[in-house]
Design a protein around this nucleic acid. Structure first.
Lengths: 340, 340
DNA sequence: TTGTATGCGTTATCAA
DNA sequence: TTGATAACGCATACAA
């Protein structure tokens, strides 16, 4: 049994309240007794029971963080900056992996609510409606990270403008003489893929390049997905080939590297490639991958800050903020100027 | 205000206790009232307050996990397997980064204790004495991951036998004709570095190779550390060069890659290199890095299992287990057979 | 400046 | 099968 306020109080013939006050630096207490109490407390190896305190205060000083999978190199930086700022504000993080499964996400969410976390940071998977409405109906403060808010819900969120990223990446290719650009996208049902497409089309249009149907591909988001599709494409087509690939993710780009190399072609001599995500291994690829880098640290920082702000805000009227962050094109070795 | 047992009880003219029993599937309760209560509970959007429950039960179903830095690619896999198994056992994880600072580690530890986590999983930094004795004196169940127990403490721990790893790696080099092998180590004050050295020396001795002083290096653990030292070494020495490098970490190996390339030499033609850690980017290096791979998943799994076991064990006598795990040599492209 | 009493939401013990 | 009551460890309003 760990020692309680009561134990200290009894030894000193004081009341629990004074002990409580002494230990929480309450103003109305004499220096003498305060020091006395503090000394004994540390002698008795007292550690306040934050569970009991939470019950009284209705605050746990912990927030829930739900991500896809910490093993995905996209997340660690985000998680780190969140934990860092949370720590500075005396909050702890309960980390949950949804494994991109919205049922699991919801299950975690329920647990977090039952544990009475003060708020939730959510990086939702595909259909985010159930989780969001759950949070809403239970009035849990939360902010969404790396997702655009659906129109139906007003929420705190921070997102990176992927359309912008796709746009500058495509412009960069065009400026370097590329006109036949393939878009290796993921399922169009999810927002980032739509945004990639939009930014891509926008850049094409601005340069009066007509999109060609046979250069649009849709794969799953693993390296193996793009590998298969592009390998087959390269084997079957000798002409009408693109000079560049714009990919929905770095993993996708890696699949394309493999496909290209297996066909005896080289990068960037035969094809320029741009990825998206800037996962750590991308800079070690041969050649190092040019990629659209999301502002991971900012996403984490702004996300947790937004949440903490809402937690501090005692007004009943909450004003939701949507923070738009811009990705950055990191130019490495997988892109090359060609004669146009 | 979220709804409480009391709210449900009042609406039904029942006592709190029956409602409690109904909701926790207590046997002694009639089906009728049970169903009645359950229905109303979900109607009223009831979520049990686990804080209150924890206070009574003295169990929080959450465990603290302290690692160095989630941004270090060594950790995510470990964290993932821990979270997965914890989840299956209805536990949550509070994640803390120590940033390899033992004061910060201790600070986190105190917070975790105050939050009354049921147990702690600790991947301690250098001097682990303060944290461990803190856990001991407070009787917090814990297990150490990726660290050998100091003799003074008996604790639960899972560790990988780095001496074994260094041994098989060195043997592999020797079998492939290498005799002049440089050891790029970290500070000998920390245990893994000593183990690396021991395994290395053992293999040398078994093959009657006499260790040469000028082939022992001691750097910090960043890529920049080994880079500087080896670059200088290669520039100053034309002969007496080693044919292979055994490194304390993959990062260290990356620094050596850079140094070697800048001196116009190549891998593995001029030098064979073996790393240690198997971080994700290593397989994308050119050439892909041969490395000693710690059993990350097993470390996480065995660690959390050990802790859960201790938590389940209601006996007052605890038997501590030390689980020894073996690393594996992953042979990729950075090592080559030479004529001996 | 200190003490008393009450409540936070739950489970558990004992009666009914 | 159900209910009343105490307890978990703390904070706070009110009284002294």
């Amino acid at each position: 049994m760990s020692t309680r306020l009561k134990d200290i109080a009894e030894k000193l013939n004081l009341s629990e309240s004074t002990v409580s006050r002494a230990l929480s630096n309450h103003p109305k207490i004499s220096k003498k007794t305060k020091n006395l109490i503090k000394e004994l407390a540390s002698e008795m190896n007292y550690h306040p029971n934050l569970i009991a305190k939470s019950l009284v205060m209705k605050k746990t000083k912990t927030i829930g963080l739900i991500i896809g999978d910490i093993t995905n190199p996209f997340y660690p930086e985000i998680v780190k900056s969140i934990e860092e700022i949370a720590d500075k504000n005396a909050f702890n993080i309960i980390l949950c992996n949804s494994d991109y499964d919205s049922e699991k996400e919801l299950r975690h969410l329920k647990m977090l609510v039952e544990k009475r976390v003060d708020g939730v940071l959510l990086m939702p998977v595909g259909k985010k409606i159930p989780s969001i409405s759950y949070l809403k109906t239970n009035k849990i403060p939360f902010t969404l990270i790396d997702t655009t808010p659906s129109e139906k819900y007003d929420t705190n969120c921070v997102y990176t403008d992927q359309e912008y990223g796709a746009h500058i990446a495509t412009l960069y290719l065009i400026e370097n003489g590329h006109k036949e650009i393939a878009l290796i996208n993921g399922p169009l049902s999810i927002s980032p893929c739509q945004q990639l497409r939009n930014g891509f089309l926008k850049a094409l249009k601005e340069n009066e390049i007509i999109p060609k149907k046979h250069l649009f591909f849709e794969c799953d988001l693993k390296a193996s997905g793009s590998y298969k599709i592009i390998k087959e494409f390269l084997e079957k087509n000798q002409d009408n080939l693109p000079t560049a690939f714009l990919c929905i993710g770095d993993k996708t780009a890696i699949g394309i590297y493999d496909a290209i190399y297996e066909c005896g072609k080289s990068i960037p001599e035969d094809f320029s490639i741009i990825g998206n995500d800037d996962i750590p291994e991308s800079k070690y690829l041969v050649p190092p991958l040019t990629t659209i880098a999301p502002p991971k640290n900012s996403m984490g920082e702004e996300g947790i800050k937004l949440l903490l702000e809402e937690l501090r805000n005692t007004n009943s009227t909450v004003i939701y903020k949507q923070i738009r962050l811009l990705p950055e094109l990191i130019i490495r070795g997988s892109t090359k100027r060609i004669k146009s």
